[in-house]
């Protein structure tokens, strides 16, 4: 929530003058996150888990939709097309196929949920690709990525807790969550060793 809120905040027209909108954010990753949250939270109206759960689902969908709108429409001029080039079809197709093959239940909602779990684990790739292409990440982008990466990393602790105390585990969510966290690891390394020391992340050219 902090990471997504940061992104909306930094892209919000009231908060910053248009030219200050942070560059270096991958619109493609933001679209993948929007698809992820919509596909996963379709049960928003049918399954009530808790006020917190529903509130966060609404927030995730609304904030990522707002980010996509602000980035690709309102501030289209500052969107960096040249560096945001990772082909998302190569991420979406395998996740869709895998969701059809490996799932808990062959029903539309469950397959969409599974697709969303797989997609989330690779949704950050366009962003990491863009950072490697631009060779650097703005500090605010680094904070956003750190928050986003630690979100799923913390879930791993929760899954361990639930395994030992509730004797419950969801292998699909766990495997995808571990893959997703691993994808952030090299970024976490850069974040800890550089950004937290006040330096900017500049990748070797």
């Amino acid at each position: 929530a902090a990471g997504i809120g940061l992104l909306v905040g930094m892209n919000c027209p009231k908060a910053v003058k248009p030219r200050d909108v942070i560059t270096g954010i991958s619109g493609r990753s933001q679209i993948l996150f929007l698809v992820t949250y919509v596909a996963r939270y379709l049960d928003l109206l049918t399954n009530f888990v808790s006020v917190y759960n529903t509130a966060m689902k609404v927030f995730f969908i609304a904030a990522s939709a707002a980010t996509v709108y602000l980035m690709l429409f309102k501030f289209k001029a500052t969107y960096d097309h040249n560096h945001d080039t990772l082909r998302v079809e190569f991420l979406i197709a395998p996740c869709a196929l895998l969701a059809l093959v490996v799932n808990h239940d062959f029903t539309p909602l469950e397959i969409l949920w599974t697709f969303s779990i797989y997609l989330e684990s690779v949704a950050i790739l366009p962003q990491l690709f863009m950072v490697s292409k631009t060779g650097e990440a703005e500090t605010i982008t680094s904070h956003y990525l750190f928050a986003l990466g630690s979100y799923r990393a913390l879930y791993i602790l929760n899954w361990i807790y639930r395994y030992y105390f509730d004797n419950f585990f969801d292998l699909i969510a766990i495997v995808a969550g571990v893959v997703q966290t691993v994808l952030y690891c090299d970024f976490f390394y850069l974040y800890i060793t550089k950004v937290l020391k006040g330096k900017k992340i500049v990748l070797p050219a």
Partner: peptide, 10 residues
């Protein structure tokens, strides 16, 4: 425990 009826995580 059995099969999970619906997903209670984000």
């Amino acid at each position: 425990e059995g099969e999970q009826l619906f997903h209670d995580e984000l």
